[in-house]
Simulated assay, not measured.
Amino acid sequence: MKEYTAQLSNRDGRWRLYVALFGPVSQWPEQDLGSVPAVPTVAERSRALDGLGFMFTEGAEWEWTEYSETLDDDTSPVRLLASIVVRSLDGGAP
């Protein structure tokens, strides 16, 4: 069963969830979760992944990373990026 990385990010006030599919032709299926003030719930993220044809792998947990929008500039806005391991709903390649 092939595993992929799904990521959740916020840019310009909009939350986006996407899955990184690397290969001969890389793809980034994406779901826009809209402009909401709080981080989308786990249930909302799960529904978005389902809409893209993916699901969380058993025991997977979200990992959060903080990074500066401008590298090496501590006055730059901070961005959050969450990652989790997923698999396709049918267990094969998407």
Rank of each mutant, 00 (worst) to 15 (best):
V85G: 07
R45D: 03
R14K: 07
L17Q: 03
A60T: 05
L81D: 05
R16C: 13
Y67P: 00
P37H: 05
P40G: 09
R14N: 05
G53V: 09
L33T: 01
T41V: 05
G53R: 00
D32W: 06
E3K: 11
R16H: 11
W28P: 00
D90G: 10
D72N: 15
Y18W: 12
D72W: 14
A48V: 06
V36E: 11
A43C: 09
R11C: 05
A60C: 03
G51F: 05
L21D: 12
I84T: 06
W28T: 10
G59C: 10
L17F: 11
V86G: 01
W64K: 14
R79D: 08
N10F: 03
V25T: 14
A60P: 02
M1C: 12
V25E: 14
G91F: 12
G59E: 12
S35L: 02
A38L: 10
S68L: 14
D12Q: 14
E58N: 04
T75K: 08
W62K: 00
E69W: 07
R16S: 12
P29Q: 04
G23Y: 12
L21M: 09
L89W: 10
D50C: 15
V25K: 13
E58Y: 10
Y4P: 02
D74L: 07
R87Q: 14
E3G: 05
D12M: 01
L81I: 00
T5G: 02
L49E: 02
G34C: 06
D72V: 06
E61V: 13
P94F: 07
L8R: 03
A60Y: 06
T57F: 02
L33C: 08
Y18I: 01
G34E: 08
A93C: 08
S68W: 05
K2M: 12
L80C: 07
R45M: 14
G51P: 00
L21H: 04
Q27G: 05
Y67N: 07
P77M: 10
E44P: 04
S88T: 15
R14W: 13
G51Q: 09
A38T: 05
G92K: 11
V85I: 09
M55Y: 03
R79L: 15
T65G: 01
A48D: 09
S46H: 15
A43E: 11
G23M: 07
Q7W: 04
R16K: 15
M1W: 13
S76Y: 09
G51L: 07
E58P: 02
L71M: 11
S68T: 10
A38H: 10
A38K: 02
L8H: 03
F54G: 00
V85M: 10
Q31M: 12
P24T: 11
E58C: 01
S35W: 09
R11M: 09
F54Y: 09
E61L: 06
F54M: 06
Y67Q: 14
S83D: 14
A82L: 11
R87W: 03
L8C: 05
E3N: 08
D32Q: 01
D74W: 05
E63K: 12
S9L: 13
P24R: 13
W64A: 14
D90M: 07
F22I: 07
D32Y: 04
P94Q: 08
G92R: 12
A43Q: 13
W28C: 01
L89Q: 14
L49H: 05
T65F: 12
V42N: 15
L52K: 06
F56L: 02
V36H: 15
F22C: 08
